[in-house]
Design a protein around this nucleic acid. Structure first.
Ligand code: MN
Ligand code: MN
Ligand code: ZN
Ligand code: ZN
Lengths: 138, 138
DNA sequence: CTTTTAAATAATAATGATTATTGCTTATTT
DNA sequence: AAATAAGCAATAATCATTATTATTTAAAAG
């Protein structure tokens, strides 16, 4: 059986072309896509798909822990197929989002901070990415 | 001169009763208030103030670095009079937001990660707070 | 392979936080 | 006391996300 289908079935998710399409885009294309961006991409193969359907599929995948939702940009969510704990960097100049894999941080190792039980965490960094930095220092 | 007035003038901010009121609420009341919550509080002393004015004042203070905007709740921003770098914890049960002061973390000390220049960062933790934890383990 | 049925989709409307607009009001300057 | 520039209230607009509903489809049963 195809790998995508296998993974979705393992999570008790009904297979539909739309769901396979969204999953493929999340896997194949650049990471950290907005719902709108996914919608634009999937419309190439499914011209009648609705944006609401994209949102509904993303919500399903999120609940099944098949993806991560990040809100590094206050205005809109981005969706990430990586589900392991990692951080993100948003370049203020080019708006690119980078994965940041930090070395063991005191807060990451513990399941608690100040007596509060941690279920998940998000680290968001903002600044100028290396590419943009290089461009300005010619 | 009054302390609030002094601080605002130091940042070249014109003094108005509305601005003083918002500033006072941010200082005095519990931290991490939404624009709506600030609006509700300030309407006690300024019944004719507009929500748009509250937003405009908050934007001004943000640009002058007099407050921090956090988006730990995806749906709405909260405003924090603390402007030093610190993290936040959101309790999934009672929705309370706590300040988290972490010990030196590798990412915090450096001004760079993976070659990217960091201007600012936000750390968001999600889980069950100590109070709610105690309540459930009676 | 057909029928059945519960779930998924497309189309569309609604929601809600935030931002933009505009005419009036207030604070500072002259 | 004017003049001028900025702030405010009221209101409309924007835009991402969610809700609704009738139609279609995937999976299960026969
Ligand atoms: Mn990522
Ligand atoms: Mn805080
Ligand atoms: Zn960049
Ligand atoms: Zn709690």
């Amino acid at each position: 059986m195809e790998k995508r289908v296998e993974i979705l079935k393992k999570h008790n998710i009904r297979i539909t072309p739309q769901r396979l399409g969204v999953y493929e885009i999340l896997l194949d294309k650049n990471k950290h896509l907005t719902a709108e961006a996914i919608y634009r991409k999937i419309r190439v193969s499914f011209p009648t798909i609705s944006l609401a359907t994209v949102y509904s599929i993303l919500e399903l995948y999120y609940k099944k822990h098949l993806l991560n939702e990040i809100r590094i940009d206050f205005d809109k969510s981005c969706f990430d197929i990586r589900t392991d704990t990692h951080h993100h960097f948003l370049c203020k100049q080019c708006a690119e989002i980078y994965d940041i894999d930090l070395h063991p941080c005191s807060a990451l190792n513990n399941k608690e901070v100040d007596g509060h039980l941690i279920h998940e965490l998000q680290g968001y960094f903002y600044g100028i990415c290396s590419k943009c930095k290089d461009k300005s220092n010619l």
